[in-house]
Design a protein around this nucleic acid. Structure first.
Length: 872
RNA sequence: GGGCAAGUGGCGGAAUUGGUAUACGCGCUAGUCUUAGGAACUAGUUCCUCACGGAUUGGGAGUUCGAGUCUCCCCUUGCCCACCA
């Protein structure tokens, strides 16, 4: 037994020396090198973009979390794959290169060097030998190869999977396309004779409607003054419409040739797959809303005096007997044909065009104007309400549903539109509220509440509640042949092209006959040409359109978007050096998919959706063996500046991790970032609070020389807390509750100090268990103390300690005594004591007697080992 | 407008199935040490009250012996989507 004044002292803890020592020793011994055998666990951070501005303390938060987790898994005996690499194509590098007049590749390589230096001093346990980089031709060769597979595939609805385009061509040659159920852009049908008589160019145009990667047109943000296309985040809202962030010049919409990926073919699979994923519910919800599946009915309505048949989609068809007019999108492709016989067609089309222009000049979600014009045409209501007028309406969207809506008084937009243009309305849904009912009848207000509304038409449904009648209504309308069941989706095919230089070249060749042909696999990688200028061409086209050697060969001038490489990079880590395939099948089968994926929630509808889509596509082709790429997902919250704003140069509130590491040490940074609050929460950095984490580590350092008992057992009270903490820390790391894990270890350290100062024993073996559970958070200092205890093998390779379930509870428990649910006293009783015993003991206490004397005890509530409550 | 999440001391935050609210840390107060300041250590710290005691988890109601936790209404904040038929 030692008194505190005669205790051995450790010299002051020098974090710089210790951290450097262990980082180089771990590297020398290759302790984090991944093997290819044993129970696997794949822990991955989202592919970072190495920006030129360097890291702030918020960036490593996710990396520290995943590192703590990876270290736990390693200590639990898993073969852990924990790699890091870079997503280095994209706009910021190109912009940076333009401004600083250096090649994007050079800029990116410099950034990576700086980024990596900052990461390495934090002591993250990556296997750096597996590093990948999207801008490396050996990597983007495979991105191009996957793109060609998408280009060479179609989606067979019958088999519900992607297939090579050749199978489709064979069907066309034998039967035409009439019976084909495919995910396609077009609906026209043709026979085998039609097909076989078509020119190569015509065939190619047809196939383009089926390919999973296809050429099309879409509007982009075009800035005439800058002569370039802008991304959404390069645009600001101006007083007279959108303007460019740089310079504030006006931005307009311009139709540009693009490549698309037919992600819509996978909408149902992407939706269904969400259920099995261990992801944050809000991210799943965001993806679900983004896919936006809406089930409803399609009605057909023949246009009067014409062979045109309108199709309308309705998800709220319960009150369809109230429909009195049609609304068609002002940019609907059917419009010119519909108006062909009208004498004033030019006037109408001009108006429609004006509406489209006006709508486009608003920022998304800002346009709320009610505008429209009567087409002069009528279509026959399939439900027998006669011929109804067809209006062009500002609220109708050509992209959603069929682009045509059957409208009624029971929809707010329809109602407002009809009121403005004096279109007749009728009501078939009534509220129970009489006063409101009168107003609805007189068409003073719009009523659209299906939950409480009662139907008055058709007579088969009279008196029924709108919501309850929905299912029967479907059966009724479908059986009569008036409607068919249909689902629409909000998700759109993804634009897979950028009019920029710094991206993967698209490996396609435009031939003189107008056909587009893929490069052969052995011609990959198609390398980005070295060019002198990265300036935009001024026409909106990519800088590659100005490279004559490129254009001469007919090569595609668009490049791939930033998300191309990030959609599959995690597969490359499984086998990063493979020259024959993006990864060997054996490796793909062994690693299967990412077990723990950590990154920001802002990628919910981008990266996380695209990667799932590519993965499902690759699975259809037998190139991967799991149906989802990321089993568990954790999203780290941001670290804000001390002023509660996003850290940025602009606010001057950026905290550099290098400064923290040199003042307090990497271990302190790691412990503090994990202790700050819940992993998923966004919290401001507090420079005052970090000292607490440093003190915790220093106290651990100072107490360690006092641990001198090798052969005696620890104090029993201490053992209980130790085993509880081992259990809690393991469980908390698994669930990413790092803050409570750290707090539990602080409690344990307090107990160690208390136990020792009371002259009781903490054995060396038990203290080492504490070092082991602290190791994932603070690997350097724990490794140093571990060595001081005479251990030769590195702590980071030790096994995670096992807790003894018998040591989780003590023999005695504290029982809370309540009178009328108010705490009046406590008492200590043997574990598992019965009610009679506790009750008797409690009644004997003076503090209790004071409250029950002279009163009737009506009821006693007893919860074993916890509480006894006397109701008086 | 629709959807989702959250609201607890001076601050960051903790609380298994409903069972001692405020763990842990910062800060603050007092003390020890020190020429002094800082660091470190020790003790205290939800609020009101000299005290007995009482109040308290955004506000209001409800269920219960007992509610931060469950139910309903309202307020506030954050995020996502948005003329989506």
């Amino acid at each position: 037994m030692k008194k505190s004044n005669s205790v051995k002292k450790n010299p002051e803890y020098e974090h710089l020396k210790v951290e450097k020592k262990w980082q180089s020793l771990w590297e020398k011994k290759k302790v984090y090198k991944t093997k290819e055998k044993g129970k696997k666990h794949y822990v991955l951070d989202m592919f970072p973009y190495p920006s030129g501005t360097g890291l702030h303390v918020g960036h490593p938060k996710g990396y520290i979390g995943s590192d703590v987790y990876a270290r736990l898994k390693r200590m639990q005996g898993y073969n852990v794959l924990h790699p890091m690499g870079y997503d280095a194509f994209g706009l910021p590098a190109e912009q940076y290169a333009l401004e600083h007049k250096i090649a994007p590749r050079k800029a990116v390589m410099d950034n990576i060097k700086m980024f990596e230096k900052q990461l390495q001093i934090i002591g993250l346990s990556y296997d750096w030998s597996r590093k990948v980089n999207t801008t490396d031709p050996e990597f983007y060769k495979w991105t191009q190869s996957i793109f060609l597979k998408l280009f060479g595939s179609w989606y067979n609805k019958e088999k519900d999977k992607a297939e090579p385009i050749e199978t489709l061509v064979r069907i066309f040659e034998k039967e035409g396309n009439e019976k084909i159920k495919a995910h396609t852009t077009e609906r026209t049908t043709f026979s085998k004779i039609d097909w076989n008589s078509k020119t190569p160019k015509e065939k190619q145009d047809i196939l383009m409607n089926y390919r999973l990667a296809y050429e099309g047109w879409s509007s982009v943000n075009w800035c005439p003054v800058l002569g370039t296309v802008l991304a959404n985040d390069e645009i600001l809202d101006g007083p007279n419409g959108p303007v460019s962030e740089r310079g504030g010049y006006p931005v307009e919409k311009k139709e540009m040739r693009q490549w698309f990926l037919r992600i819509t073919a996978y909408a149902d699979k992407l939706l269904a797959g969400l259920e099995k994923l261990d992801w944050n519910d809000s991210i799943k919800e965001i993806q679900k809303n983004w896919i936006g599946k809406s089930e409803g009915l399609i009605f057909q309505a023949p246009v009067k005096d014409s062979d045109i048949v309108l199709e309308t989609f309705s998800a709220h068809f319960e009150a369809c007997y109230a429909d009195t007019f049609f609304a068609i999108a002002p940019d609907h492709p059917l419009l010119p044909k519909l108006l062909a016989d009208r004498s004033n067609q030019e006037e109408i089309l001009k108006k429609a065009n004006d509406i489209v222009k006006r709508r486009e000049s608003f920022a998304e979600g800002e346009y709320k104007e009610i505008d429209g014009i009567f087409t002069g045409c009528y279509a026959l209501d399939p439900l027998g309400n006669g011929n109804l007028p067809i209006w062009i309406a500002s609220f109708a969207l050509k992209e959603y549903g069929t682009g045509i809506v059957k409208c009624s008084a029971h929809d707010e937009r329809d109602f407002a539109f009809a009121k403005k243009f004096n279109i007749p309305l009728k009501t078939v849904l009534m509220p129970l509220d009489k006063a409101l009912g009168e107003k609805v009848k007189d068409l003073e207000v719009c009523f659209n509440d299906m939950e409480s509304g009662i139907l008055t038409e058709p007579k088969e449904f009279m008196g029924r509640n709108g919501k309850d009648a929905r299912k029967d209504m479907v059966k009724y309308l479908v059986s009569k042949g008036w409607a068919r069941v249909h689902a629409t989706y909000k998700i759109r095919d993804a634009v897979f092209a950028r009019q920029r230089y710094w991206g993967e070249p698209i490996p396609l060749v435009h031939s003189k006959d107008g056909t587009i042909n893929p490069l052969k696999d052995k011609e990959l990688p198609l390398r980005l040409p070295e060019v002198k200028s990265y300036m935009p061409t001024g026409t909106g086209e990519s800088p590659l359109a100005g490279v004559s050697s490129w254009v001469k060969k007919g090569l595609e001038t668009n490049t791939m978007p930033g998300w191309a490489g990030s959609s599959w990079y995690f597969l490359r880590y499984m086998d990063p050096k493979n020259k024959k395939a993006f990864a060997d099948k054996k490796a793909l089968k062994y690693w299967d998919s990412v077990d723990m994926y950590v990154g920001g929630a802002e990628h919910a509808t981008g990266h996380l959706l695209y990667a799932r889509f590519w993965h499902k596509f690759l699975k259809d082709h037998g190139l991967v063996f799991s149906s989802e790429p990321f089993k568990t997902l954790k999203n780290q919250g941001m670290i804000l500046g001390p002023d509660n704003r996003k850290m940025s140069k602009r606010w001057g509130n950026v905290i550099n991790p290098n400064d923290i590491v040199s003042t307090y040490g990497a271990d302190t940074l790691r412990v503090y970032e994990m202790f700050m609050g819940p992993f998923e929460a966004s919290l401001p950095w507090n420079t005052d609070s970090i000292i607490g984490s440093r003190r915790f580590l220093e106290r651990t350092w100072r107490v360690s020389p006092q641990i001198i008992e090798k052969n005696k057992k620890s104090d029993p009270d201490f053992e209980i807390i130790l085993h509880k903490t081992i259990k809690k820390v393991g469980e908390d790391i698994e669930s990413f509750s790092f803050n409570t894990a750290v707090s539990a270890m602080m409690v344990l350290l307090n107990k160690i100090e208390e136990t020792l100062s009371n002259g009781k024993i903490v054995s060396e073996k038990d203290f080492e268990a504490f070092l082991k559970i602290l190791c994932p958070f603070a690997p350097h200092i724990t490794e140093e103390i571990w060595q001081q205890f005479g251990n030769k093998k590195p702590l980071v390779l030790e096994k995670w300690p096992k807790y003894d379930p018998k040591k989780l509870v003590s023999d005695e428990v504290k029982i809370v005594i309540q009178i009328n649910s108010k705490v009046r006293a406590t008492c200590v009783v043997p574990y598992g004591s019965k009610e009679e015993y506790v009750s008797g003991l409690a009644r004997g206490l003076a503090e209790v007697e004071k409250w029950i004397v002279g009163k009737d005890v009506q009821k006693v509530v007893f919860v074993p080992n916890k509480i006894i409550n006397f109701v008086v």
